[in-house]
């Protein structure tokens, strides 16, 4: 089912990430409904006020949904169904708000952590070096991650995910903790890499600039309860249906 991939190829998997009739409930209340097909290289943004269930959707896709939630529907990567798989078999690269570099490993170790075990030691070292050079951090392999700046940490975290050869990306407000100048550069870098590899990506964000920068589709999630009385919302694309959850606007 997986197309053959030479180990360090950056060509595409050309599989779409598909959300098929996904519905997530909490205590009997419908939180989110979603139908979406994300093409390779496409970065779909999920927006909405905090507490609406953006992170829940991401946790569901990644396989970490807390037991309190109930979910129905299916998630596919191409033909492969992900829904029943444990998180570690989904091959979805997750990029968090925080870079979450392991303090017990150096920068090179953090990158090696993401690489498949099948790659031998000398090759691992070579790829670490080239990945670091790629993000302007050549020679940083032995550094303690605590000594890096915020932007450097974010770049290392991105490379760690990419070295793990994911089949799709999930971005959880990845730029929200960076300052304005860095945010722009990091956005460019992340989007460019995702597109270069032809990965479908789902990005949760509350920053409109993030969504605009992708130029791709935006999904607005509205609060389930407040959406029943209109006008309370300050959502920009308010012309949509007020059914809780699903609003899929293609721009």
């Amino acid at each position: 089912m997986r197309p053959y991939m030479p180990p360090d190829s950056s060509s595409s998997f050309s599989d779409s990430l598909v959300f098929d009739n996904v519905a997530i409930d909490l205590d009997g209340h419908r939180l989110i409904t979603l139908n979406a097909r994300i093409a390779p290289g496409e970065i779909v943004s999920v927006m909405g006020p905090s507490g609406v269930g953006k992170s829940t959707l991401l946790a569901y896709a990644a396989g970490f949904l807390a037991p309190a939630f109930r979910a129905t529907g299916h998630v596919y990567l191409g033909q492969r169904e992900l829904t029943g798989l444990p998180a570690q078999q989904r091959h979805l690269g997750l990029l968090f708000q925080d870079p979450l570099l392991f303090p017990h490993l150096n920068v090179g170790g953090n990158l090696a952590f993401g690489m498949p075990a099948s790659i031998k030691r000398s090759e691992r070292r070579r790829r670490i070096e080239s990945a670091l050079a790629d993000i302007g951090l050549a020679g940083f392999a032995k550094r303690d991650p605590a000594t890096l700046s915020g932007g450097q940490k974010a770049r290392v975290a991105l490379m760690r995910v990419l070295l793990s050869q994911p089949h799709a990306m999930l971005l959880d407000e990845p730029f929200s903790k960076l300052d304005a100048a860095l945010r722009h550069d990091m956005r460019q870098l992340v989007f460019e890499r995702i597109r270069a590899r032809g990965l479908p990506a789902l990005m949760v964000t509350h920053d409109h600039a993030d969504a605009e920068a992708t130029g791709d589709a935006v999904i607005e999630l509205l609060p389930a309860r407040e959406s029943e009385h209109d006008g309370m919302l300050s959502s920009p694309s308010n012309a949509q249906s007020s059914a809780p959850g699903l609003q899929h606007a293609k721009r």
């Binding site: 990644a62 396989g63 970490f64 444990p86 998180a87 570690q88 078999q89 989904r90 091959h91 979805l92 690269g93 997750l94 968090f96 925080d98 979450l100 392991f102 952590f113 993401g114 498949p116 760690r160 995910v161 793990s164 999930l170």
Partner: peptide
Amino acid sequence: QRTHLARSLGYA
């Protein structure tokens, strides 16, 4: 967060 990160990288 760390176990989630590691599991999304494919770790059991």
